[in-house]
Design a protein around this nucleic acid. Structure first.
Lengths: 129, 129
DNA sequence: CATGGTCGATTACGACTGTAGACGGATCGA
DNA sequence: TCGATCCGTCTACAGTCGTAATCGACCATG
């Protein structure tokens, strides 16, 4: 698996992730914009959002760009990369690194509905062609 | 999805999880036994293992049973339940609650090898029958 | 009966996380 | 030009996590 050298970003915490989601949805955004988006779901105040943004910048997960006197924030890591990293963590930790085990588990626990199965089947067929 | 009312256990941390793995592999075990198993991988000392065991007992994830003067520890939650809970968390957080998206992601990132694909295909076929 | 080893329980403590207030500089309106 | 704003930074603080030393009870042995 040709591992691209992604910007080696430290682990993103749960709260930080919520901020990243906002930025992935749209960027660049000012701190106030981010707050508008996340403070709706999580019940946060401006300072909280700013702290999280700072930490993300410190970690190298987000870039700042001055726009006038304020900063605009842009994610440096891609959502897919993050999702992949987290998925791999889970699969490694709980399923001995075998994705098929995860799938088996989901199937067994009936977490897969008809749509999921159909979709997976379709993907599988596509991969096999 | 008929959710059984599992013992509502607080979130198990990474380190605690390592202890749970030991207990899932074999139980009941004394603290020393657990240490034998986990101190091999993680480089821990006895006190560390005992702290983790205590925390797990406090959280209701592990039960104690006196055997002579020492305690024997037994997991109260099942591995599958834990795996399911964590998987759901991941799918909810990163894939909008759609397991198929997780699968798609794994496929796209080439995290699935031939064996995985074959296995999943087999499972899928079994589910469909 | 005294002593030392064995356990679990208690305490410690630094790092990280979640959450937020206070500070200080830049800026815009008056 | 002067204060009211806006914004990023610094500071704070309680809770959790990872890691471990220490304490106190208990039992076996001399």
């Amino acid at each position: 698996m040709a591992r691209r050298d992604e910007p080696k970003v430290e682990r993103i915490s749960e709260a930080e992730h919520a901020v990243m989601e906002a930025l992935w949805e749209k960027s660049p955004l000012s701190a106030a914009d981010v707050c508008d988006r996340v403070c709706a779901q999580r019940d946060w105040s401006m300072p909280t959002v700013k702290t999280l943004l700072s930490r993300l910048v410190a970690k190298g997960a987000v870039a700042t760009e001055a726009e006038g006197r304020r900063f605009l924030y842009t994610p440096l890591i891609e959502r897919a990369a993050y999702a992949g990293q987290e998925s791999r963590r889970l699969v490694d930790r709980l399923f001995g690194g075998r994705p098929a085990s995860l799938f088996a588990h989901l199937a067994e626990s009936e977490a897969l509905n008809e749509d999921d199965l159909a979709e997976i089947e379709r993907l599988l067929k596509a991969l096999r062609s």
